[in-house]
Each structure stands twice: as structure tokens, then as C-alpha cells.
């Protein structure tokens, strides 16, 4: 119950962010999609033992957060939600992979710890980049981009309707469960039969609403497809955006920048 409320709140917050006029929101959503995909692929293409080498890529989410004027609290909140599964699996690494890899201040760190930190870093960077970039683009713009990228109409329509009615059904679900809890006494958890009844009611309401929605669509001439009538203009700024960021990603992937920087700083020879 609490999870649903939080989830809806987060979604609303992201939608608000997407609606503002920032340098990021003016970019074509196709460019944003492309760059985010490139980012994630580049990030994940590193060898598992790379930690420092990943850091130059961190420039991407940091700049996004700044350009999108995303409040720090939102970012922290996002990171806390992120990928518990990956972290759990990653935690197994130090146990399994115990061959020493790093020598730091006289302490030998096993490969497992290095790869665990690497996983941590990957999670943080990929999650923040994805949500910052695409979450702040807003669903309508995203679907317009997908439609222009030849993604089947059914899928775009599905995403739009899902997003539209998430809040409606989410609110209904909250009201149902709240009303239940007020009469349910001191039960700590929801018994299965009651869950089935609540879920079933929600399903029936979804069905009825779908019927009325269909009628409303028919009444205004619906013939099977929603018009995704949003003109997208690819601008020079978008080409620059894609070009600059992909160059940075390639650079960071090809050259171990922190290592080079560190060598400069500590005077250690190449």
C-alpha cells in the first residue's frame, strides 16, 4: 500500500520535472534515447575489474542532473531504489573471487572486491543516467520518439494508455486498500482471500473503465489507432549532443583516463 503511494508520487515528480523548460527538455527525445543506450552499452562493455576507468563516464549523469536541474534529493532517492538484485548478486563476488588484484597502502584487495565495487559503480551510473535522461523526458515525448523510430503503433499506444491510467487505477487501488485496512483490524498482512477480493475488484473496475473508455473513443471517431500528433524536429543541437557525448564515451572507453591522470599526478612513469 505504501509502495504504491510512493511509486505514484515518484512518477508524478518525474512528470513535473519533464514538463519544465530546461536545456535537456529541448533536446529531441530520439537523441536522448540514442545517447542513453550508447552510454549503457559503453559502461557495460568494460571488463569486470575496471573501477577507476569507469569514472570519466560519470560525467554524463552529472551533467544531465545539472542540465535538467534535478534536485539532489530526487537523485539520492532514485539511487536508493536501484537494482537490489544486482547488488545482492554482486556481493557474492568477494566470496568467490579471492585472488588479489590491487595493492593499496600495503593491503591486497581481492578481485572480488574490485568487481563488486565495479558493479556498484555500474548500477549507480546506469540507473541515474537512465532515469535522469528518459524519466525526465516524459511519456508523450518518448512515445513520439518511438513512433518516429518505427516502433509498432500498438506499443506506443499501449505505453501512453498505461501511463495515463496508472494514476487513475493506482488511486482506486489505494482507496480500496485503505478502506479495507480501516475495517480489517490488527492484521499485519493481507490474507490471500482478501487479496483476491481486492485484486478482483480492481480488475473488474479496470474492465468496466476499459469498456467506457472504448465507448468514449468510438464516440469521437476512434478507428483503432491513436494519433500521436507531435511534430519532432531534429535540430543541430541534437546532432551536437549525440556527437559530443558519443565521442566522450569512446574516449573514456579507449583510454584509461584516470590512470593517465594518476600517473601524471604521482609522477609514476608510463
Amino acid at each position: 500500500m505504501g509502495r504504491l503511494a510512493t511509486a505514484l508520487q515518484d512518477l508524478r515528480a518525474l512528470d513535473t520535472l519533464a514538463a519544465r523548460d530546461t536545456p535537456l527538455s529541448r533536446r529531441d527525445p530520439r537523441a536522448k534515447l540514442l545517447v542513453t543506450l550508447l552510454f549503457v552499452i559503453t559502461l557495460m562493455s568494460f571488463d569486470r575489474y575496471r573501477v577507476a576507468a569507469l569514472l570519466p563516464l560519470a560525467l554524463f549523469p552529472v551533467v544531465l542532473a545539472a542540465q535538467g536541474a534535478v534536485p539532489a534529493r530526487t537523485i539520492a532517492h532514485l539511487l536508493m531504489l536501484a537494482a537490489p538484485f544486482a547488488l545482492l548478486v554482486g556481493l557474492a563476488n568477494p566470496w568467490i573471487d579471492s585472488a588479489p588484484q590491487l595493492l593499496l597502502a600495503g593491503i591486497e584487495l581481492s578481485g572480488g572486491w574490485v568487481s563488486f565495487v565495479s558493479i556498484l559503480l555500474r548500477v549507480t551510473l546506469s540507473v541515474s543516467a537512465t532515469v535522469l535522461m528518459l524519466g525526465c523526458t516524459g511519456m508523450p515525448a518518448l512515445c513520439a520518439a518511438l513512433a518516429r523510430l518505427r516502433v509498432p503503433q500498438v506499443l506506443c499506444t499501449q505505453l501512453l494508455l498505461l501511463h495515463r491510467y496508472l494514476f487513475v487505477l493506482g488511486d482506486e487501488a489505494q482507496r480500496l486498500t485503505t478502506a479495507y485496512r480501516l475495517r480489517a483490524g490488527r492484521r499485519p498482512r493481507l490474507p490471500l482471500q482478501h487479496f483476491a477480493a481486492l485484486g478482483g475488484q480492481l480488475l473488474l473496475r479496470a474492465h468496466e473503465r476499459a469498456t467506457r473508455l472504448h465507448q468514449a473513443m468510438l464516440a469521437r471517431g476512434f478507428t483503432g489507432q491513436l494519433p500521436l500528433a507531435r511534430p519532432l524536429q531534429w535540430q543541430q543541437g541534437d546532432t551536437l549532443f549525440v556527437g559530443l557525448w558519443s565521442s566522450w564515451f569512446l574516449l573514456a572507453r579507449g583510454i584509461d583516463l584516470p590512470q593517465a591522470l594518476g600517473r601524471l599526478a604521482t609522477g609514476a612513469g608510463p
Binding site: 499501449q158 494508455l161 498505461l162 495515463r164 491510467y165 487505477l169 479496470a206 473508455l213 472504448h214
Partner: peptide
């Protein structure tokens, strides 16, 4: 189409 949208939600 509307049913899929609603059931997704």
C-alpha cells in the same frame, strides 16, 4: 486496445 492499456495499469 483500451483493455490492454487498463490491464497494464
Amino acid at each position: 486496445v483500451p483493455l490492454m492499456g487498463l490491464l497494464g495499469a
